[in-house]
């Protein structure tokens, strides 16, 4: 792989991480600031409205970015030369792959929660559930960044 290609692959990977982390933090902050959004005094069960639109936009971008990050992650591994399964570096890679897989599964559940809330399965209390979901996403991404840092620099 040429130096320019390696740089491009890493750039896409980093920008992708910044996008999903920044988006999750933004969604968390926006939904938290909007309040818990429980049913009003009249017992209204209004749909989520704008928060749902924000969440759906994030999910579009999130899954596109995850696809791009998987392919650039493999590219990064190819450029560095992947370690064998044994040894410290190999164990860290195993841990990172397992953590990313768990994160992707959790993220899919979060996305399906968004879909269910949008279909009107819930009252306004869904807004606080979404806020917690995006907060957890941002926190999990920080852990993954730390693992990636250890993997890259030891």
């Amino acid at each position: 792989m040429s130096a320019a290609t390696t740089l491009l692959v890493r750039l896409v990977h980093l920008v992708g991480m910044a996008l999903v982390f920044g988006g999750a933090a933004f969604a968390w902050a926006t939904l938290s600031a909007a309040g818990p959004g429980r049913a009003d005094a009249g017992g209204s069960t209004a749909s989520l409205g704008e928060p749902a639109a924000l969440a759906v936009t994030y999910e579009w971008v999130f899954w596109a970015t995850m696809g791009a990050m998987v392919v650039t992650g493999v590219g990064n591994l190819g450029a560095l030369g992947p370690p064998g399964p044994s040894g410290r570096w190999g164990s860290i890679l195993t841990a990172k792959l397992l953590a990313v897989t768990a994160f992707v599964l959790g993220s899919f559940v979060r996305t399906l929660v968004v879909f269910r809330l949008r279909r009107g399965d819930s009252t306004g209390s869904g807004r606080s559930l979404l806020a917690k979901g995006y907060g957890a996403t941002a926190a999990a991404l920080l852990v993954l960044v730390a693992l990636a840092e250890v993997l890259a620099h030891g």
């Binding site: 579009w60 899954w63 696809g67 493999v74 992947p82 992707v104 599964l105 993220s107 996305t111």
Partner: peptide, 28 residues
């Protein structure tokens, strides 16, 4: 949106499981 999310999720999970299997077997 649903088709996009489901297809991307399934592809990403399949890729990760493939990577894990290749790494664990030393074939990566």
């Amino acid at each position: 949106v649903e088709a996009w999310v489901v297809s991307s999720f399934n592809l990403v999970v399949l890729s990760l499981v493939g990577l894990l299997a290749a790494h664990a077997s030393g074939a990566l």
